[in-house]
Simulated assay, not measured.
Amino acid sequence: MEIPGFFAAIIIGLVIGALGRLVVPGKQNIPIWLTLLIGVVAAILGTLVAGALGVDETDGIDWIELILQVAFAAIGVAIVAGAHGRRRVR
């Protein structure tokens, strides 16, 4: 991955994190920076899984890859929000 591709992946990951947070129902008591970090990780995981499935390079918008990325972000946000919420309860 070249430098412009790396920066593009980070920017896309930030958007994916926000979308993942919107998909998860209820209020998530986690900081926005953590949501964005989850999005970057989810974007990378979604791209890797899409590549393994052979659907990472298609004509037009890569809908399957995008859905995988948002799904990973939603799962990540739900897990971290659950763990973060339990840690704060005393």
Rank of each mutant, 00 (worst) to 15 (best):
L68A: 10
R88A: 14
D59A: 15
I32M: 04
L53Q: 09
R21G: 00
D59K: 14
A78E: 03
I16F: 01
I75D: 07
I30D: 04
V77G: 01
I75S: 06
G85K: 07
L53V: 05
A9T: 03
D59R: 15
V80D: 05
L53M: 14
I30L: 03
Q28G: 08
D62E: 15
A74T: 00
L19R: 07
L34V: 08
A81D: 14
F7Y: 13
D62H: 15
A43I: 03
V15K: 00
G51Q: 11
G51W: 12
D56A: 09
M1L: 11
T47I: 07
I67M: 11
L48E: 15
L22I: 12
V41T: 09
E65Y: 12
A43F: 05
W33P: 02
V77M: 05
I3K: 11
P4E: 03
V49T: 13
L37F: 13
G51A: 10
A50R: 01
V49H: 07
V23R: 01
A74Q: 01
T35P: 04
G54Y: 02
G17R: 06
T35Y: 03
Q28R: 06
D56F: 05
R87T: 02
V23T: 01
R87Q: 15
I16W: 03
I3D: 10
V55E: 03
V40N: 00
E57V: 14
G60L: 06
A8E: 13
G17K: 05
V77K: 00
G60E: 07
V80S: 08
A78S: 10
D56V: 05
I75C: 07
A73F: 02
L22Y: 11
P4R: 10
L66A: 12
I38V: 06
A78T: 03
I44Q: 03
L68T: 07
R87P: 08
V55T: 13
G51L: 07
F72G: 01
A9G: 13
I61K: 09
V80C: 09
P31E: 14
A9P: 06
L48H: 13
G82S: 09
T58W: 10
I64W: 02
I16T: 11
P31F: 11
P31G: 14
L34W: 08
D62Y: 12
W33K: 09
I16K: 01
N29V: 08
V40H: 04
L68M: 10
L37Y: 05
R86F: 11
V77I: 07
D62C: 15
R21W: 02
A78C: 05
R87Y: 12
L19N: 08
V49L: 15
L68V: 09
D59G: 13
L53K: 03
L45W: 09
G5S: 11
R21Q: 08
E57M: 15
D59V: 14
A52T: 11
G39P: 05
A73T: 00
I67G: 11
I75W: 12
G17C: 02
I3H: 13
L66F: 13
F7R: 10
G5A: 13
E2I: 15
V89L: 11
A81G: 08
G54F: 01
G46H: 00
V49I: 11
M1C: 13
G20P: 02
A83V: 10
G76R: 00
G5Q: 14
E2Y: 14
L45K: 06
T58K: 14
I64C: 04
A78I: 02
V41F: 14
A81Q: 08
